[in-house]
Nucleic acid binder design. Sequence first.
DNA 1: TCTATATATTGCAATATTACGATTAATTAA
DNA 2: TTAATTAATCGTAATATTGCAATATATAGA
Lengths: 109, 109
Amino acid sequence: MGVTKTEIFTEEQNQLATLLKALAHPARIAILQRMMVANTCICGDLVGELGLAQATISQHLKELKNAGLIQGTIEGVSVCYCIHPENWKKLEQHLNGFLKEFKGPVSCC
Amino acid sequence: MGVTKTEIFTEEQNQLATLLKALAHPARIAILQRMMVANTCICGDLVGELGLAQATISQHLKELKNAGLIQGTIEGVSVCYCIHPENWKKLEQHLNGFLKEFKGPVSCC
DNA sequence: TCTATATATTGCAATATTACGATTAATTAA
DNA sequence: TTAATTAATCGTAATATTGCAATATATAGA
């Protein structure tokens, strides 16, 4: 009934799904890409550059933060966001581990 | 509202988000893992093994197929599903390209 | 043909997500 | 203190997702 049955899956499967869900939105991908190419903190520059309202961007940032993908520190009036290095590495490993489970095509279908 | 504003993002960002969304559910991750470790076709074995109703699994398979992540061929009464090799490779490359944009930590936050 | 088996589709209820205006909270500068 | 700036939160509307029972469809075998 509209709610995912997390209890029937492994901790790993649920965790990966949660991480992927946090990534699975063009606005959040755009936000992360900006942080990565800037290679520095991004404050409120996002609003106006992305074409979404301030409340919406704040919401997306919150989701990325909850997923542990970014971190933010208060910098005077504004807030300074950037990629969370350790967790990003973990995400890379987790995802690569998943993708690499596929051992190449076996002519069947 | 409540609908993603795809028109303000790049084609690339939207595509990646769509792929990630297809992956972002524990049931679909579980299904893909089974296909990968089996390294062969999976027919209806999924029902009963996963703990979800047949209609629900059929729905998840459809989503994975729409995203191009799996392919299925009719094999008598049952249907034979497996990973779509080319698209899986593309996904790997697309995702790696995205993850690798991060050039390591720059002490800022 | 009739029956059994396997999968897809439909319709629906419960819940989640997306987006934004309005408001609130916190900090800086005057 | 007051005003300005920035970001978070609240409330709400629109839409999407998840899950399942019921039903439909399709094939194989008797």
